[in-house]
Design a protein around this nucleic acid. Structure first.
Length: 270
DNA sequence: CTCCGATCCTGATGGC
DNA sequence: TGCCATCAGGATCGGA
C-alpha cells in the first residue's frame, strides 16, 4: 500500500518521538515477513541510541550509528506507537521497546514487508540498484527522457521501476500521468522530450502534494486508533473508473494489465 | 538486456 | 447469512 508519500509521512511521524532514544528490546511476535525477521535483531540493537530515521525510496532506515535497521512496509505494513499496556492484535509482528517506555509497533497482514539489518544500506542488495529520489534534482526532465530511450515498456511501468526512479507506486503513477496528460499505456520510448519534462514535473508535484496532505493528517495520528501515514487522496483518476474526469467530465477509463490497473481520461491524456 | 506474467500472503468487498 | 471470486497501494523471479 504505502508509496513514497505514506512512507515519508510515517518517517516524519515517528522520527521526532524516537530520535535520541535508546532501544531497550525488540519483541518479535511473528518473524514471518517477506524474509524472516533476524532473530538476533534485539541482541544487536539493544542499548544503542537511535540517531535518526531516514528514507530511501520506500525503505525506512533506522540509523543506530554504524548499524542500520531497514524497514519496508510492503503492501499492507504500518507503523504506530502502541499505548502502554495496549495488547498486540493479529498481524502485529514486531514491537520496539525504547528505554523511556515508548513502543513502536509494526503491523503487516499480508507479510510483504521486511525488517532487516545492514551496516551499509547503500550497498545492501535491496537498495544498491535504486534509481534517483523523485523529489531531488537528479530526477529531471533530461534524466527521464534519457531513461526512456529505446524502451518499449509502457511509461507507467517505467516510472514504477525502482531502478529508474524510486517511490512511485500504482496510485501515484496513474495520478502523475494524469497530471502530465499522458496515457499510461504509451510506449516509454515514444514520449517526446516535452512530454518527459511534463511527466517529471508532474511526478514531483503529485508526490509533494501527497506528502503535504500526509503531513496535515499527521496531527491525528497519535489518536488511539490512528495508523500512521494513511490519508485520503483526492484522486484525479485512480479508482475512478466510469466517474467523470474532474477536468472535462469524460468517464475515466480503466486499463487492466497483469493484475495491476491503470486509470486515465481518454480525452485529457494523449 | 528487456519485457511480461506469475507469485508470495491476508482481508475487504460484491455477486449470487 | 454463507460462499466464492475478485481485487488490493510491492517487488522479485523466471521464462520467452
Amino acid at each position: 500500500m504505502p508509496e513514497l508519500p505514506e512512507v515519508e509521512t510515517t518517517r516524519r511521524g515517528i522520527e521526532p518521538r524516537l530520535a535520541g532514544k535508546t532501544l531497550e528490546a525488540v519483541e518479535i511476535r511473528d518473524a514471518r515477513l517477506r524474509w524472516p525477521v533476524p532473530g538476533d535483531i534485539g541482541a544487536r540493537l539493544a542499548g544503542k541510541k537511535l540517531l535518526a530515521v531516514r528514507r530511501r525510496g520506500k525503505y525506512l532506515l533506522f540509523d543506530f550509528g554504524g548499524l542500520f535497521q531497514i524497514v519496508h512496509l510492503g503492501m499492507s505494513g504500518s507503523l504506530r506507537f502502541a499505548a502502554k499496556n495496549e495488547t498486540a492484535a493479529a498481524h502485529d509482528h514486531v514491537d520496539w521497546h525504547f528505554a523511556d517506555g515508548t513502543t513502536l509497533r509494526l503491523r503487516d497482514p499480508r507479510r510483504f514487508g521486511a525488517v532487516l539489518l545492514s551496516d551499509d544500506p547503500p550497498n545492501h542488495p535491496l537498495l544498491a540498484h535504486l534509481g534517483p529520489e523523485p523529489l531531488r534534482s537528479d530526477f529531471s526532465a533530461a534524466y527521464l527522457y534519457r531513461a526512456c530511450r529505446g524502451r518499449k515498456t509502457s511509461i507507467k511501468n517505467l516510472i514504477m521501476d525502482s531502478r529508474i526512479v524510486v517511490g512511485v507506486g500504482n496510485i501515484y503513477a496513474s495520478e502523475s500521468l494524469s497530471a502530465a496528460g499522458i496515457r499510461p499505456g504509451r510506449a516509454a520510448g515514444r514520449l517526446t522530450r516535452a512530454e518527459c519534462a511534463k511527466l517529471a514535473a508532474a511526478v514531483k508535484t503529485t508526490l509533494q502534494n501527497a506528502v503535504r496532505a500526509g503531513g496535515s493528517s499527521l496531527r491525528d495520528y497519535v489518536a488511539a486508533n490512528g495508523e500512521l501515514g494513511y490519508f485520503q487522496l483526492h484522486a484525479r483518476v485512480y479508482g475512478r473508473a466510469g466517474l467523470p474526469c474532474r477536468a472535462c467530465g469524460t468517464p475515466i477509463k480503466k486499463l487492466a494489465t497483469a493484475q495491476r490497473s491503470s486509470f486515465y481520461c481518454p480525452v485529457c491524456q494523449k
